[in-house]
């Protein structure tokens, strides 16, 4: 079921999926006596859209937080680009090229969309504090280059009309898009999306799906996402990990997962003895 070879292959729709870029090995995460994640292993391949699904409380967000370095698991290792990753702070993980969005939007509400997206470029700003304050020489050139990169993302996500609008005045669906823009601004090699479509109506979901596919197609970004809407997940992803009560109960292509008895039971419910 789980393809462990590291050879690249081409999907039906003509995208190239590379070798394993990130691997989770026997991860266990506990909060006191509560086991949030129990001995889970899976991998993410370069250029794929990888979904993590499961019922409420299955440990999906915890898993994403392990990947982003927010939680450090008690057991198990994370391998990134073939290297075992030592325990890291989230900003160090971000510096490695992993960007994320949040389930509960975490933008700077009082700042404009443009400024929010610019914060995503922090990793690309190398000039010193003094140069930034005086805004001379290197700092100025850097800002111009970064602004251009940000404008391309604004264009890509079609949010030109709210460029100068404070985030607090935006409706929910647009805030989600701004968050995606900020994550993209970091030019990540892996993009983590925590429930990108939660609380959206059908039309907004369609738009967001299109953006996710376009990001993957256009920039070749590897995407790991958590999502509730099964229909969306099955359409979007190349491979799916299914979690339930902190355990992995399925892993494979959408079709494989759909026909997996354990997954069907978890979603439709079975009598527990």
């Amino acid at each position: 079921m789980n393809d462990m070879t590291h050879d690249s292959y081409t999907t039906e729709d003509g995208r190239t999926i590379g070798g394993v870029v990130m691997e989770m090995k026997n991860i266990t995460l506990r909060f006191g006596g509560v086991v949030a994640i129990e001995n889970i292993s899976f991998d993410i391949r370069e250029g794929e859209i990888r979904a993590i699904i499961g019922p409420n409380g299955a440990g999906k967000s915890s898993m994403l937080n392990v990947i982003s370095g927010f939680y450090v698991p008690q057991e198990g290792d994370v391998f990134y680009k073939g290297q075992k990753r030592p325990p890291m702070r989230p900003y160090q993980v971000a510096q490695q090229g992993i960007a994320r969005t949040f389930q509960n939007i975490a933008l700077f509400e009082g700042m404009s969309v443009l400024d929010n997206v610019m914060t995503g470029r922090l990793r690309q700003m190398k000039s010193g504090l003094l140069a930034q304050a005086l805004w001379k020489g290197k700092a100025e050139a850097e800002e111009v280059a970064n602004r251009e990169a940000v404008e391309r993302i604004i264009d890509f996500l079609e949010i030109q009309h709210i460029r100068k609008t404070p985030v607090s005045r935006l409706p929910y669906g647009l805030k989600k898009r701004v968050e995606l823009a900020r994550a993209l601004a970091a030019e990540p090699s892996i993009l983590l999306l925590d429930e990108p479509m939660a609380g959206m109506n059908v039309e907004e979901k369609e738009d967001m799906s299109r953006f996710i596919l376009d990001v993957n197609d256009e920039f070749g970004t590897t995407i790991a996402l958590i999502e509730h809407d099964m229909g969306v997940v099955m359409d979007l992803s190349d491979r799916v990990v299914v979690m339930d009560y902190g355990k992995k109960i399925g892993d494979g292509t959408p079709d494989e997962v759909r026909n997996n008895q354990a997954v069907i039971d978890a979603y439709l419910g079975v009598a527990h003895d």
Binding site: G14, L213, D214, E218
Partner: peptide, 11 residues
């Protein structure tokens, strides 16, 4: 057919 914006059309 000729298109201007190549986005999403590569495949």
């Amino acid at each position: 057919m000729i298109y201007i914006d190549p986005r999403g059309l590569r495949k």
